[in-house]
Design a protein around this nucleic acid. Structure first.
Lengths: 156, 156
DNA sequence: TATTGTCCCATGCTATCCCATGAACACGTC
DNA sequence: GACGTGTTCATGGGATAGCATGGGACAATA
């Protein structure tokens, strides 16, 4: 399978290195990514990590904004300014830079989360909080959908 | 028969492995699945397990959303971050990872429940509690229906 | 000279392969 | 009907390969 799936939490060692989960590495290889880009996620405290296509995706997003408005400029500044390359060493580890720590709050451990075409790196506790919020939003969505269907029916 | 039907509880061995019920395995084989896709269910503490087609269905659903809105992001976070592939070993067993234990509370045994096109894995006690809740909900529904019918009739 | 980043190797844990055991069950023969 | 035989299946365990992690050595940098 060639999608980033599942999640795992790995430790950062004394030198600031952390192993990228083996499954993610095999996806990277399968997709032919040599260079890894780490970008700040726009609305959460996490890093989005992926290949060159991730940059394209971000640029598409930014292009949606009116180029005369400040938002587009801010986004570009935010994303490109604090983006970075990550190099995998021979053992499949990356070094967590201060850039990454600042934006994510990552300290001793990194939580990796598959997102299909890319993956994310989180501070584990923040990930847990975010996951809870996502679940409650999705549950609400589901309830709204079933209520809408019930209302559409002539009668219960 | 190519549907997941009935339920069974199997033991997890000292290495964290558990046999997938033979009947389920034959369904999987009939459908040509080598890998399993397991998702931490949204509203219950169980894993929904099916073939990779389950993931495909979710991804098609996500594709309907505007990729830059929160809904799409939430859905992807859930489907990819809370999903994982499981491999059947040669003896038809899977290993219960912490990823699964965390969400389900599974400890020493796994209760498998057929759900037609997919099946679920539960912690046995929780399954029992859930089954009880489902039954009483259904009973209430039925009572309400018959009361409504009685009220609609002119009366005896 | 200190520091930082690679490379390389060691270690222990975990997942996987392969084989063994024993229980439940079906089938056929006496 | 009773008994043996074979099959299927859940379960256990030894051996091994893969993986996360720790640390030494060395080069590049400042």
């Amino acid at each position: 399978m060639d999608r980033f799936l599942s999640s795992a939490t790995n430790k950062i060692d004394t030198k600031g290195r952390v192993s990228v989960p083996a499954h993610f590495r095999s996806v990277l290889q399968k997709r032919g990514f040599v260079e890894l880009y780490a970008l700040r996620a726009l609305d959460v405290q996490a890093m989005d990590v992926g290949g060159p296509d991730l940059l394209d995706r971000y640029e598409q997003r930014i292009a949606l904004e009116d180029p005369f408005l400040q938002a587009a400029d801010d986004m570009s500044f935010f994303v490109h300014g604090d983006g970075s390359f990550l190099k995998l060493d021979q053992d499949g580890r990356i070094t967590i830079t201060d850039f990454i720590r600042e934006h994510t709050g990552i300290g001793a451990e990194v939580a990796f989360v598959g997102r299909g075409l890319f993956f994310q790196m989180w501070e584990p506790e923040r990930l847990k909080a975010h996951a809870g919020a996502v679940r409650s939003r999705l549950l609400k969505l589901r309830q709204q959908a079933s209520e809408a269907r019930a209302a559409a029916l002539p009668e219960s």
